[in-house]
Write a protein that binds this DNA or RNA. Structure first.
Lengths: 215, 215
DNA sequence: CTCAAATGAGACGGCCACGTCTCACGCGGA
DNA sequence: TCCGCGTGAGACGTGGCCGTCTCATTTGAG
């Protein structure tokens, strides 16, 4: 099983599917399942480029397949949040790191979050994602108490924005309505505009890809 | 088949399901289908409070059921956009009307948009939704050219935000993480913050429900 | 009360996907 | 060359859901 079949250099450097899923097969299945949530094993097999029998050899059952993909996605989410270290440093920069990290994840995980998901996670991993979410809520409160973030934004709403705008960004890219770079930039700027107090906006910077500067 | 089983006065006055769906049965089916996209007819029937046979008498087939719900949701969407008259008056106020109207729709339509949807719409209705989207894009461009909206926001991204934040708002309410009022207010303010130039923000007002004033 | 229409309960056939199994083929190493 | 391993193709049983049908019961209007 080869590595990423074609991974040209993308200026935005989204995480490659292989950094999220253990397998090229898992990655392909996830990609197809994201845009066809009710796909049959037959269909998934074709998407992976393998026969149905081999797909069953790799994943004992359809439920196992879904479960593994959800596991991988959740692990990647937790890892991204932890690596962003939302509790460290100035809230504005911490926010930028979080958005950057999760934004890179969006194209890969994206619509997968729409699967039932929660039901398929081990308890331990579920606890880890809950803890990651709690860390993000704490970041919001920390920024508010420090006077950086708008106090009227409920941390819960921040989580909702983060989740669904990631989905929206991934979906826009999939439909060809936005480029990956544009989607990522818009995601970042929208979250910044929603959360930051207006006078803090100019302190918010993300690593913007070189080819898509403002306008 | 009674009317809305219990429709207490809600301060936010979201549109009642009966303003969107032709039936109480359709409304109940839509509600259940939104959070269980793969629900069986048996399950749907229980959600509607009717036997499976009766459900089949009301909807000739499962596909017909899905199609009707999508039709209704799309019609409500088109109607809401038209009533908001995005082409009239100052862009900032037009935006407020759009967000207000669609925000009221979110709890009802909400997750239904996640269904395959597009495949189940008649061509004429599909054209109407496309036209509604085009009107919204025009509103964005109009606001940008008039100096009200931030020029770096792609109209396409505005549509994505609108769609997915509506879904996120509906989902947050469903999970009990936000009240309907809070979700609606956050939706409005996030879209305003994302789209309006900072110096225009104070001109943006939505009809805020009386019980949830700022903080 | 009477009767017609609607409903619930359940059976039935058909279909499709799942999951298991067998077998033939190809490929690589000894 | 021979052998072992993985794969593809396909058959097969099973189960669930769909859609249709029948029939007993209920509901509501006159």
């Amino acid at each position: 099983m080869s590595n990423a079949p074609a991974s040209p250099f993308t200026p935005l450097r989204p995480v490659s599917p292989d950094q999220v899923f253990v397998d090229a097969a898992a990655a392909a299945a996830a990609r197809h399942l994201a845009l066809a949530p009710a796909a049959s094993m037959q269909e998934l097999a074709r998407a992976v480029g393998v026969s149905r029998a081999t797909l069953f050899r790799r994943f004992p059952s359809r439920a196992a397949l879904i479960a593994e993909l959800c596991q991988s996605a959740a692990q990647a989410y937790v890892r991204a949040v932890n690596e962003a270290a939302p509790h460290d440093g100035p809230p504005t920069q911490a926010l930028a790191r979080v958005v950057e990290g999760l934004g890179r994840l969006a194209p890969v995980v994206g619509l997968l979050g729409l699967q039932t998901l929660g039901e398929h996670l081990e308890a331990s991993l579920l606890a880890q994602t809950a803890q990651a979410e709690e860390e993000l809520r704490r970041l919001v409160r920390r920024g508010q108490e420090g006077g950086y973030f708008r106090v009227e934004v409920d941390p819960e709403w921040f989580l909702a924005m983060l989740t669904w705008l990631m989905v929206g960004a991934a979906d826009s890219v999939r439909l060809g309505r936005l480029t990956a770079n544009a989607a990522h930039r818009h995601l970042s700027e929208t979250l910044a505009a929603a959360l930051l107090r207006p006078d803090e906006l100019h302190h918010f910077t993300v690593r913007t890809p070189p080819d898509s500067r403002r306008r």
